[in-house]
């Protein structure tokens, strides 16, 4: 029983670690898509954030500088996306795809040019990374049954960026639903002409949405390479941006639901490694590939209206012309 309790706790702990970049990218995706811009470039922004964070930290020795540089790099990608599909009304999917391919090429080219390690960045020392933080009283409370271990193993002991990701969800919900900016942002994704006729700039609103998304993706990238990992390796994002996009859709473009979807997808990922070689009664061993494909299968089922009804922003994907 005790054993099972700890197993469950560690699985949930792993879930949170895996879900962190998903949560941040999903919030980024929500801002962008609620403003009417399709964002398949989450993957590229995440990847470039991860590279810049690791590269700048390796050069300066400061994780904080790395984090801010990563945010800057992701925002730059966002601005490129905005330049193509807001200013020049280009196809949003094509632009997003271009950014993803540019990111996977540029990160490796610059990585080789800077560090000559086949695209990897040097491994960072422990004090150059965002390390796990032991929260207040975690050792003292550990003696208390059930609550103590939950507090110590699950709630305490994560890096700062995990807590940032968790804080981003209420923050995103607050901005979207409780501020004037959020109201306008949601409106511009539904009926941009109404926002325009109220004298508010459609383009500037959408740019701001993309910039906010870039900041989130930058933090997510930094988490991958200077907190969870200790260096950048090529294609490090490994489709996480697309999973986050799936979570946005699965969460019906709402922060809390998308957060739930991220946790679910993270959980699937976390138990996949634990289920390897385990024979379940009646079913037998479930292939890991099936578990990893589940987020996509579930999202496709949702999109097709087999589980619930998706309600995407109505103006999504359409360039705005006056």
């Amino acid at each position: 029983m005790i054993d099972f309790f700890y197993q469950a706790l560690w699985t949930l702990d792993a879930t949170l670690r895996v879900a962190t970049p998903l949560i941040l990218c999903a919030m980024a995706g929500i801002f962008s898509e609620r403003s009417g811009i399709v964002d398949i470039s989450l993957e590229g922004k995440l990847l470039s954030g991860a590279f810049v964070a690791a590269a700048v930290t390796a050069l300066t020795g400061s994780a904080w500088v790395g984090l801010f540089a990563a945010m800057g790099a992701s925002v730059a990608m966002s601005l490129l996306h905005g330049f193509a599909c807001i200013t020049h009304r280009g196809d949003q999917v094509v632009s997003g795809l271009a950014i993803n391919i540019l990111a996977s090429g540029l990160t490796v080219i610059l990585g080789i040019a800077l560090f000559k390690r086949g695209g990897q960045t040097p491994t960072l020392a422990a004090d150059e990374r965002f390390r796990p933080i032991e929260l207040w009283l975690s050792e003292t409370l550990n003696g208390i049954p059930v609550i103590g271990p939950i507090y110590k193993e699950l709630i305490s002991g994560h890096s700062l960026l995990v807590y940032v990701a968790l804080a981003c969800v209420p923050l995103a919900a607050f901005i979207l639903y409780r501020t004037r900016f959020g109201l306008r942002l949601r409106a511009v994704g539904e009926v941009p002409i109404a926002v325009d006729s109220a004298g508010v700039s459609v383009a500037w609103l959408r740019y701001r949405a993309l910039i906010i998304g870039g900041l989130f993706c930058g933090i997510a990238g930094a988490y991958l390479s200077i907190s969870h990992g200790a260096n950048f390796v090529r294609e490090m994002s490994a489709g996480k941006g697309y999973i986050a996009l799936a979570a946005v859709i699965f969460g019906n473009w709402r922060p809390w639901r998308a957060f739930g979807a991220c946790l679910m997808f993270g959980f699937l990922d976390a138990i996949t490694s634990r289920m390897q070689g385990v024979d379940l009664p009646l079913i037998g061993e479930i292939p890991g590939q099936l578990m990893l494909a589940l987020p996509y299968i579930l999202t496709i089922l949702l999109l097709s209206g087999f589980i619930g009804r998706p309600s995407p922003p109505s103006a999504i994907g359409q360039p705005y012309r006056k």
Partner: peptide, 26 residues
């Protein structure tokens, strides 16, 4: 070369998608 690899092709590909696709009429 030691400093440029075939990943350069990915960059060219991305640029072509950007300029021939998303920014085609710039």
């Amino acid at each position: 070369f030691t400093s440029i690899t075939r990943d350069m092709v990915l960059l060219i590909q991305g640029m072509i998608i950007l300029f021939s696709g998303a920014l085609a009429y710039m």
